[in-house]
Design a protein around this nucleic acid. Structure first.
Lengths: 111, 111
DNA sequence: CTGGATCCAACGCGATACTG
DNA sequence: CAGTATCGCGTTGGATCCAG
């Protein structure tokens, strides 16, 4: 890709993306939701290190970014499903790139 | 891309990548160094919003990650050039993916 | 089960001043 | 020009408790 004049001063695209998927948890959440719809506690199970509070918070932000959809089932006990929106799906190439490089990086740094 | 068993619990590749290029500034610095070697103050000029202190700090961390090379010219006044290492170059696809999605995202969110 | 609210410690980061 | 050291504020985020 050419070094365009999106010069990262005004509305830098890279920064914009990181704004949305950056942080310690968002991309991981998105990654897990890429394949399957998950409930709140299912997400906690696949991400044992995130705290209850943070998961809630991150999910709210992903909702606001239109990347994640929240579906509430009016039941007792409550049931809430989280899934990617179609817009969220467009992040697939980005997450793939991150994952691919990460795999190589982990290999390299463990040598 | 298949949903492999890099399940993001133990040594998650995505997290590993973000560990290295994440944060508000690192990817931007890498982006600018992708095309050309730059001196300290040249970097500041293309990134007007970063503070002196933060630029120094981020550059040190990128050095430690082996992504950026620091070359000091023993002159007065001092001259220091920063460039990508060959390892740093391998991030090209990742940064491209971030940039491409960001461009679309900015378009979308401004509508 | 899902999730909000509060308290509080830890850290990030800017501002500033100082060096070779 | 390039870089370090110190201070101090603001935000982040963990622990905990409460609620539908």
């Amino acid at each position: 890709m050419p070094h365009t004049d999106y010069d990262c001063n005004l509305g830098c695209p890279i920064e914009a993306t990181l704004e949305v998927i950056g942080g310690k948890w968002k991309s991981i959440i998105l990654y897990h939701l890429m394949e399957e719809t998950l409930r709140f506690n299912e997400l906690r199970r696949v991400m044992p290190e995130i705290t209850h509070r943070m998961l809630t918070k991150q999910l709210r932000e992903l909702e606001q970014s239109q990347l994640v959809a929240r579906k509430v089932f009016p039941e007792v006990p409550p049931k809430v499903e989280y899934s990617l929106t179609s817009y969220g799906q467009t992040l697939h190439p980005v997450l793939s790139a991150l994952q691919i490089w990460g795999i190589e990086h982990l290999k390299t740094s463990s040598e």
